[in-house]
Every structure is written in C-alpha cells, then in structure tokens.
Simulated assay, not measured.
Amino acid sequence: MEEEDETTKPSVQTSNDKDQAPGLPLFKVLVPEAVKRAENVMFTLQVTIVAEEKGLVLLRQYEDFEWLHHNLVTNNDTRGIIVPPLPVKPLSDPKSAESLSKKQMGDNTRIMRGDQFENDCLSVQKYLKLILSHPTFEQDKQLASFLTEQEAPVRARLNKGLMTRLSSVIETARKSNRKDVDDFYNSTEYSKAIKEASLNYNKLLVAQWRLSSSYSTVATELTSCTADRDEELVKLNRVLKALSDGCEDEATCYELKSAKGETTLGLFLDLFARYSDSLKEMHFRRVNDLIDYETSEKALEKAKPPKRQAAEEVFESTKAAFERASENGRKELNQFTQIHLASIQCFSAG
C-alpha cells in the first residue's frame, strides 16, 4: 500500500518562494524501500524539491530519524503541541526477528516470516509527511538539511540510561495526579481505546498468519500420503490432492488477508496508538505549565514589597506560557481530529 499523496507543506523559505503560488508544496517525500546493511536498516528517501524541480535520493538509517526527532522536539517550542510520533525501530537482528516470528507463528511452525520492511517504510513515510505538514516543524532548518544533504547529520549519543528514565518516571508520577482545569485536553479514554483496538487487531492478524501456516502444514501432509497399488488408492490420492490444493488456497488467502491488514488498518491503529502517547505528553506539558502558573500566583500573593516586582514578572511569564499552551492545545486537538479522519480514508483506500 502506498499513500496516494505524500505532498507536504513548505518546509523552508527560499528565494523562489515569492514566485510560488500560495500553498505550493516545497517537498514531496516517498520511502519506497529499505534494505539491511550489517546491523542497520537503511531507508531510501526519494525527495523532490518542487520549487527547483530537483529530485534527490538519500539514504538514512533509523538512528538518523531518531536524532532528527530529538532535535525537532528540543529546538522548538512544543508547548501545547502534539508531536507526530516516531515509528518503532525495525528489527535488524536475525535472532530478534526469528524470536518474534516464532512468538507470532508458534514454535512448531515450518514457516518463518520474512522482514517486514514494507510496513517500516510506510511508517517512516507517514512520519515525515506529518512532520513536514506541521506548522511548528515545517520550517525547521535541521529538517530541511535532513532532506537535502546527501550525508546524514552527525549524531550525538542520546542519553537513554536508567537514571534518565527513572527521573522521568518520578517526575511524571509526581505531576500526573494533578487534575487539569479543562477536560477538553484529557485523552485518557481515547488512548485506552485506541491501544486496545491496536492490540486486538494485531492478535487477529497473528491468528490469521497461524491459520495460514496450519493450512500449509496440512497441505504438505496430504500430498505426502500417496500410493498407487490399486484403483481404490489411486482414487484416494486424487481426493487427498484436491484437499491439499484447497488447503494451499486457504493458506494463500489468509496470508494475503493478513498482509493487507498490516499495511492498512494495522498501520492506522499502530500509528494512532503511538499518537495517543503524544497526546498524553502534550497534556502533561500543559499540566506542568498550569502548576507553574498556580505556584507563581501563590508566590505573588505572599510576596513582600521588595520582591513583588520580580514575582509579578514570573507570574505574567507563567500565565502567558499556560495560555499559549492552552491555545496551541485546542488548535492541535482540532487539527489532530482532521489528521485522524484523513488517515482513516488514506489507509482504508490503500
């Protein structure tokens, strides 16, 4: 399944922008394939710079997208912003891929699923489209460089240590119980529902893959039951052959159905299950701004004359930050609804 239109909004300003019609896209990006190189999965990006009628073919690995995402989040004001979620890392380790295949298909299966790079390509392609069409990130210079320079950006090591994760969990737990003043921003029920739907649909797909494997096994066993000693056994062979062909047809049918489901509804549910975490992160940042605002308000009320001016400045600053988070959040949630509906049409059409 290939999305019908990967056209994005303008990402950077160029000298040709004045000559362009309003809304003319600057980039078109497709991710047609991914191949394994050593321990990495390399994605091919077909980037078209519309204003210059120039096409580029770039190679990027998953860690490049991870580094880009980190910079986009840290170098832009994400107050009230729902950041498009980064896709999960493809499995490049043969042992991990084999373990996942056995977990899905069963330890006794004779069929091992191959690399699922098609799904990974579609996920990365969708991620880039969402980032490039987002008003907060579309004009980011690092994003433009990422899509126009042959060499991937130099990456620094991202801190994913235990202490970093632990401090994040503690901070989240400390503030997560704070009730928001507006339930409009609360996405708890949506997050629960979409994740449950994604999990259950994946279980359905795995069940279909297993059924396909079982039919293939039965077909193989039936074809091995052959004998030609007399007329009755010859007739039995014909019946067994017909049963075997039927099982093979059923195996192919379920395999195709599962593969199609993975690249349509499966990808949609997976995307928005991850998007639900982005919604919660936006809400968490808004709550942080709310806590700072309320704290500064209380500090202003208790401030003595010598420190009152400084307290007023902090209060006005935190108030403005909270109001900006609220305003952005409302716009983002409305835009998210449009993305959600558009993606339903896109993936169902695929």
Results as ranks from 00 to 15, higher is better:
K319I: 04
D292S: 14
D292M: 07
R330T: 04
L341G: 08
I339N: 13
N328R: 02
T318R: 03
E313F: 11
E312D: 11
K280E: 14
H283Q: 13
K307E: 15
R308I: 13
R330D: 02
D292E: 14
G329D: 00
K319F: 14
S326W: 01
H283I: 11
H340I: 05
I344V: 13
A299K: 07
Q338C: 14
E327F: 05
Q309D: 12
A321P: 01
V287F: 01
R286V: 02
I344A: 13
E313S: 15
S296A: 15
S317K: 04
T295I: 06
E323C: 09
F336D: 02
I344M: 09
E327D: 09
Y293L: 05
S296I: 06
E281Q: 08
L290Q: 03
K302L: 11
T337Y: 11
R308N: 10
A321V: 01
A325V: 06
H340Q: 08
E297M: 13
R286F: 01
V314G: 10
E313R: 15
E297H: 15
L300P: 00
R285V: 02
N334K: 15
A321K: 01
E327H: 05
R286D: 03
E294T: 01
E294F: 00
C346K: 12
E323P: 03
I344Y: 10
A299E: 11
A325E: 05
K307G: 15
I344P: 05
K331Y: 08
R285Q: 08
S343W: 00
L279C: 09
S296T: 09
D292V: 08
R330I: 05
T318M: 02
E316H: 07
S326C: 10
N328T: 08
K280C: 10
R324G: 06
Y293Q: 03
P306E: 15
F336V: 06
Y293T: 00
H340T: 08
E313D: 14
D292P: 05
F347N: 00
Q335H: 12
S296L: 10
F336C: 09
L341V: 14
E313L: 15
K307P: 05
Q335I: 11
Q309V: 11
H340Y: 14
I344H: 09
Q309G: 08
I344W: 06
H340A: 12
L341W: 05
A342I: 02
Y293C: 06
F322L: 07
Q335R: 13
E297C: 13
S317A: 03
A311V: 04
E323I: 11
Q335C: 13
Q338W: 11
K304S: 14
N288W: 06
E316W: 01
L290S: 01
L300C: 06
A320R: 05
I291Q: 03
F322G: 03
Q309H: 12
E294Q: 05
E332M: 10
I339Q: 12
D277Y: 09
I339T: 13
F322E: 00
E316Y: 04
E313K: 13
E294R: 02
K307M: 12
A325M: 04
K298M: 11
S278V: 02
S326N: 07
E316K: 12
E297L: 12
A303T: 04
K319R: 07
E327P: 04
K298C: 13
K280R: 13
V314I: 14
N334A: 15
N334D: 15
V314R: 07
A342L: 07
F347T: 01
K280P: 03
E312N: 10
G329K: 00
E316R: 06
F347R: 00
E323S: 10
A311S: 12
L300W: 06
T295P: 06
E327M: 07
